[in-house]
């Protein structure tokens, strides 16, 4: 009887694994299937600037630009803040407080993105417009700023684990050599934790690339690349915000629908590539320690 149950349990575990793999593959295949028409009909014209369903022009360059820019801004803000916070929670405060602070930060990750979007519209966008004296606070910078807050918890907890899991002996040995705390951090802890932190950043990057709702409300949703291109206080468009705004309006099976699938597919490819990099980093870390 027990052996029989064991078999059921094993079957359940294996079945669950296969279901997860199948779902991922299915998403990939379906997206590719529906974007195939767009790849065939539009081809390399996908990488032009003009997007206008009325004239059957589908250029995603401004959306690709927006996605990369917004994600870049988010990382530029979140990575330094996140890593410094992680150093604080893992190295500086007494151990018994670490978990309280950590779980408080992790709570941030559980807030639905539409709530972030509302806070962004109500506060961040008005702040940004008054700080930079802009006509509108719906800019690439605002979206990037909000995204930074959204990916902070991921960076903080994973970096904190990376620092915390480094065996005590390294710290004791460095301190025994008479190094100051900042030297211990800089010369001993940081080189050992570096790879895991890179993994944390890549995971956060994946989240930033895929975030839709909050970005859609804040980015301005106009298919334009600002001039000059680093002028991030202008409105723009990301791939996800384009999808969020237009999928409902496009007729199932039309070229418009297919083009939207195609940009979604390209985003998925981007995220998958990054995930593979993350995996490689995590594997390397196991060899080191």
């Amino acid at each position: 009887m027990l052996a029989f149950q064991n078999k059921i349990g094993k079957g359940y575990v294996i079945a669950s694994t296969y279901v997860s793999i199948a779902i991922t593959l299915l998403i990939f295949i379906i997206l590719f299937w529906y974007s195939f028409e767009a790849f065939k009909e539009i081809g390399w014209d996908l990488f032009t600037r003009n997007w206008n369903p009325a004239t059957e022009e589908y250029g995603m360059l401004s959306m690709l630009y927006g996605t990369l820019m917004v994600t870049g801004i988010a990382l530029l803000i979140a990575v330094p803040v996140g890593i410094l916070t992680a150093i604080f929670t893992s190295e500086i405060i007494p151990k018994q407080y670490r978990l309280y602070i950590k779980s408080a930060i992790e709570l941030l990750a559980g807030i639905p993105s539409i709530i972030y979007g509302l806070i962004g519209i109500a506060f961040f966008s008005t702040w940004i417009s008054s700080w930079f004296d802009l006509a509108s606070g719906r800019t690439l910078l605002t979206a990037g700023f909000l995204l930074a807050i959204m990916i902070l918890p991921t960076i903080i907890t994973l970096s904190d684990d990376a620092f915390f899991n480094i065996p005590k002996k390294y710290r004791e040995a460095s301190k025994g050599l008479g190094l100051y705390t900042y030297e211990v951090l800089q010369k001993t802890i940081w080189p050992l934790a570096k790879k895991n932190i890179a993994g944390a950043v890549l995971l956060a990057l994946g989240r930033a690339l895929g975030e839709t709702m909050a970005v859609m409300l804040l980015v301005g949703s106009i298919d334009k690349i600002p001039d000059p291109f680093y002028q991030v206080t202008s409105p723009g468009q990301t791939i996800t915000s384009k999808l969020g705004r237009e999928v409902g309006e496009s007729a199932f099976g039309s070229l418009h629908f297919s083009a939207l699938n195609a940009i979604g597919f390209l985003l998925l490819l981007l995220v998958i590539t990054l995930t593979i990099f993350t995996q490689i980093y995590f594997r390397k870390k196991q060899e080191v320690l």
């Binding site: 206008n52 009325a54 519209i121 966008s125 008005t126 417009s129 006509a135 509108s136 606070g137 719906r138 409300l217 301005g220 949703s221 106009i222 298919d223 409105p235 468009q237 705004r245």
Partner: peptide, 28 residues
């Protein structure tokens, strides 16, 4: 009806989204 507006700065959706943007700005 499907003309593109080259002068546009923002593209929004529902009436209430547009209303919010108009209230938040002083030159919209």
């Amino acid at each position: 009806k499907e003309a593109q507006a080259a002068g546009a700065d923002l593209v929004l959706g529902a009436n209430n989204e547009e209303q919010t943007a108009l209230v938040q700005s002083d030159a919209a």
